Amino acid sequence: MKITLICVGKIKEKFYRDAIAEYEKRLSRYCQFRIVEVADEKTIESPSDAEANIIKRKEAERILANIKDDMYPIALAILGKEYDSVKFSQHLEQLTFQSSHLCFVIGGSLGLSEDVLDKCKEQISFSKMTFPHQLMRVILTEQIYRAFRIMKNEPYHK
């Protein structure tokens, strides 16, 4: 199985990069895992709705260029469906029957455009809370790793 994360922006903080690298290493036992970073747009403080839409559209073009036909794209969105870790693992296992290449999309600081949300086959949320997109990358990567541990009936922290 292949899993790709398409993310807006680069991770600047070393502690986030280190955490992601650790989970990438652990995931290599279970799947082909990679992260695709697309450039983020410079965002002014408190952009108008029109400015925010322009920024999200530009980021969307970069995201959509990386979603390939063989992928099953899943958007991370605050209004998406929420799962606990066991249900998330079961859901990922079911998705392997539909596609051998799952793709998770994490937007930038303003979120994802409607074009990206429309392209994705589903939307998931990890909380009603808002997280920095850099931290969300760590959380998602850890939860994918945890999902594989659960699928394989291997011990995991509860």
Rank of each mutant, 00 (worst) to 15 (best):
M1E: 10
K2A: 09
I3E: 06
I11Q: 02
F15E: 13
A19C: 10
A21V: 00
E22L: 07
E22P: 01
Y23R: 11
E24R: 13
K25D: 07
L27K: 06
S28M: 04
Y30S: 11
R34Q: 15
I35K: 06
V36G: 00
E37H: 10
D40R: 01
K42F: 04
S46H: 14
P47S: 12
D49F: 08
A52F: 02
K56R: 15
K56V: 08
R57F: 00
A60C: 03
E61L: 09
R62H: 09
R62V: 09
R62Y: 03
L64W: 01
A65C: 01
D70F: 05
D70C: 06
V86L: 11
K87D: 15
F88E: 11
S89Q: 05
L92A: 07
T96V: 05
S99M: 02
S100H: 06
S100I: 01
H101V: 06
L102S: 09
L102Q: 10
C103T: 14
I106D: 00
G107V: 14
L112G: 11
S113A: 15
D115K: 10
V116D: 10
V116R: 03
L117V: 11
D118L: 05
D118F: 00
K119L: 02
K121M: 08
E122A: 05
I124M: 09
S127A: 11
K128F: 01
K128N: 15
T130V: 14
P132L: 06
H133D: 06
Q134L: 02
L135V: 04
T141F: 03
E142G: 08
A147V: 07
F148W: 14
R149C: 12
R149F: 00
I150A: 10
I150Q: 08
K152I: 00
K152S: 09
N153E: 14
H157W: 04
